[in-house]
Simulated scan of single mutants.
Amino acid sequence: MTKKIILSLCFLIAIFANAQGKKGINFQKVSLETAKQIAKKENKLIFIDIYTTWCGPCKLMQKNTFTDAKVGDFFNKNFVNLAIDAEKEGVALAKEFKIVNFPSFLFLNASGKLVQYDFGYYNAEQFSSIGMSVVNKISSASLPKTIDMVKGKMVGDKIPDFSAKDHLGNTFSSSNQKEKLVVVFIRGQWCPYCNRYIESLQNISPELKAKNAKLVIISPEKPEFIEKTIEKTKTSYTVLYDDGYKIAEAFDVLYTPDTKILDLYNSKVEGFATSRSDNSGRLPVSATFILDENKIISWRHFNPDYKERASIEDILKQL
């Protein structure tokens, strides 16, 4: 009887010691789709270790780094963690992200979009720093930008395809445009400087056509407010509703005014809070960009002062 009791105690101690010894990153045995759902629910990012069974550095990461208690605490708190064999269930994933080095590390947001990629062997301290940089990158990206923080895309930058609807519901896609594009951002129909500027641009339509260029106005306001812009300016140019500020973000012109200015706009500008896709109060810098036929920026006018706009002479000279 005594022998049985001793054996039972030894067994329980072994189980307890094993449980206590399970430190480090908790890799969940779930699909990427399930990991996305968990990440959204728990407000986490996704970390994927892509390894192979023959990779020496992969084994060292699993032995030395992933088992570290501090690494585990940080990654388990901030990430849904997956470990995927690149030559088995991870074949499609490795192909999608063009992975040729092992181990490779994918850091994704909850929607599965790549935030950061890394590869190779790292000790615990180094890998903790990588994880922290990813979390900090997401945290800083989620903070609203002040007007001093936005710089606008630069000459030589290629702008990804953007599309939006005009006030009539017609879809405009930049990829379908063969001409050069003159992209003008406005703050809205309530802005007298914007309205006057649009009016001044009307006279250059023939010259734009002669230079194989099309002028497009980007507004953060909904179609019914864009109609007011058209009424006030009598413009014949395409005016697009930047739903969700996606175009403004693509050009890096989107900012949030300070509280004092927002309070002023909300109290003085009729419909300011309801005219856009959310009530954040975000606005675009009143910038102008010229894109060549390949949608690469060839010229820009970027001034945080909404009273300062690109001159007609400069636009035509740069086309």
Rank of each mutant, 00 (worst) to 15 (best):
A94V: 09
D85I: 07
N78C: 05
L82C: 03
N26I: 15
D85L: 08
F102L: 09
D118N: 14
F102P: 01
T65R: 06
I46M: 10
L93N: 01
D68Q: 01
D49I: 03
I48R: 06
A39N: 01
T67L: 09
T65W: 14
L60Y: 13
K44W: 08
N78K: 10
L108I: 02
W54T: 08
F102G: 05
L45K: 00
N78V: 01
F127C: 05
K95N: 12
F127M: 06
F127P: 02
G120A: 05
L106D: 00
Q116N: 10
K88F: 09
F102M: 07
G120Q: 02
F16R: 10
W54P: 04
S104K: 05
F75M: 14
N43C: 07
D68K: 00
Y117P: 04
N26Y: 14
A124P: 03
Y51H: 14
A35N: 02
K77D: 08
N109R: 07
N18M: 11
Q20L: 14
N76G: 01
K98I: 08
Q20Y: 14
A86R: 00
Y121L: 13
N109Y: 06
V80N: 00
I48S: 02
N109C: 06
N18D: 13
G72W: 03
E42N: 11
V80F: 01
E87I: 05
S111D: 15
Q62L: 10
G56T: 13
L82H: 02
S104V: 06
K44I: 09
N76W: 04
N101P: 03
F27A: 13
Q20N: 14
Q20A: 14
D73K: 15
E125N: 11
N76P: 01
F107M: 05
L60W: 13
Q28R: 15
N101S: 14
E33G: 13
G90A: 05
L114A: 04
Q62A: 15
T53H: 10
N43H: 14
Q126H: 06
A86W: 02
Q37G: 11
K41L: 04
G112A: 08
E89C: 09
D118Q: 11
A124R: 02
N101F: 11
N76S: 03
C58A: 06
F47V: 02
F75Q: 09
K63Y: 10
F119W: 11
V100Q: 12
A94Q: 07
G24H: 00
N81M: 04
F127K: 00
I48P: 00
Y51N: 08
I46T: 02
A17F: 12
